[in-house]
Design a protein around this nucleic acid. Structure first.
Lengths: 240, 240
DNA sequence: CGATTATTTGATTTCGGTCAAAGTAAGTGG
DNA sequence: CCACTTACTTTGACCGAAATCAAATAATCG
């Protein structure tokens, strides 16, 4: 558990939680945390579990504590597009609208901390800083969505894959830092999911990964584990 | 000017402004409006004028009062992608970050109302409802961005064009309503810009429009004016 | 009216999709 | 522990939607 003089009065549930530091809960004082914690549940969901369903009513919001959640949209004939990936300590939910317009699904095994929509909306009124944090999170999501719009609309298959690997490296390489040469991580998505994220087919994703491996830009172990020796070589292939 | 018993004490500048009703300024009381209005400037910009430049410092935010603003991102080799279109009374700006990561440009002649970034951020602290409005606006932008991600990643050229026409109709047909059969409007974008919005080339955009015209789904006058007799036929081609 | 820019149309190419099959990994139950 | 199923990934052959290249036509503007 993180050493912290501010741990006094903090709910046990929250004491070691990243969302209290970098996530939205950081806006709350011990009393408010305590109040929210009363209606809070921590739970695990395994890969593939649907967390929020399209057109379903959403009565609870969550923080991602570990793992990766994918947000997808589906056309009437079944074509799918992943429109966002959420990592700890991201917030999952669409405030001020009870109907969801997308599906949230556990891409890996995940741990979540969830609370009633109403409880959060009530607390937002008494603690404006909570709304501020939420705004900052949503602004980040918007920036990311727009970055991917450029990739989807204007990048080649090869550039899409390179950009994707870089994004994953930035988000889940535990050793990540701004000035490092290499990276390694487990892909949180299957080939089919990567395809749905990048607007490609499984076959194209597979071929492009094989190509990067052939050019010694990446190494792949056990299908999911990726090692990048020189991030620069990947960046050079990302188009931007 | 709009008849309104609440017009008392409202700055002249704001009296007839849509942003005061549906935009972010609706969160402000007359006193606050007055304070903000002191550092507010109304101005016009003609088609093509760059309003916010990529990597430039942003010292002012704006409301769109009329016309259409396009938000674009450009790759190092010049490929471009439009990542958002803003209509009145949308807010333009990225709070909590002085560096812009995109370019905002007048797609048509526009009227704007701009104010210093600092003034808005100061006022957000004393009036949480302002931040609330901003959050709602940014949530809408995020929803829209994600809808376009689906179009960019998974729709065919024909579906992209149909979706685009529908979106424009919804936003600028003055007679627009939920239960109407037809629509007509002036396209706010050139063929090249539509291409940059949909991740296509000019030629493909042109061919798809010609095709829709051939199938009598739309009529086009003077290159820019579009008439849709039966919205349903367009919706049927939009993919979702 | 000529000059310039935007749009359309046509011919050809290409990147990524589709279809098909083989190779791999991960369980499952005997 | 190993046969067997099932799901995921890779590879190959071929195809097609949209890109590219090239020109003609239409609109706009000084």
């Amino acid at each position: 558990m993180r050493e912290d003089i501010h741990t006094k009065g903090i709910p046990v549930l929250c004491a070691s939680c990243e969302a209290r530091h970098r996530g939205i809960c950081g806006a709350l004082n011990p009393d408010q945390l305590l109040t929210l914690a009363k209606s809070t549940k921590r739970h695990k969901a395994e890969t593939g579990k649907e967390l929020v369903s399209d057109a379903g009513n959403v009565e609870r919001f969550s923080n991602v504590l570990s793992g990766v959640v994918k947000l997808t949209k589906t056309l009437s004939d079944g074509r799918q597009q992943i429109v966002g990936l959420q990592f700890a300590p991201d917030f999952i939910g669409r405030p001020f609208q009870s109907e969801s317009t997308l599906t949230a699904e556990a891409a890996t095994d995940v741990e979540l901390c969830s609370f009633p929509r109403k409880a959060l909306e009530r607390m937002m009124k008494e603690q404006p800083d909570l709304e501020h944090r939420l705004l900052e999170q949503k602004l980040r999501e918007l920036d990311q969505a727009r970055d991917w719009m450029v990739a989807l609309g204007r990048k080649t298959a090869a550039e899409k894959i390179a950009s994707f690997l870089l994004m994953i490296a930035r988000n889940i390489d535990p050793t990540a830092g701004p000035e490092q040469r290499g990276a390694c991580f487990d892909l949180p998505l299957s080939r089919a999911e990567i395809a749905d994220f990048l607007g490609l087919t499984v076959e194209t994703v597979s071929r492009q990964l094989t190509r990067l491996r052939g050019e010694k830009v990446i190494r792949i172990e056990n299908n999911r584990h990726v090692i990048v020796d020189d991030i620069g070589r990947l960046t050079a292939r990302s188009g931007d």
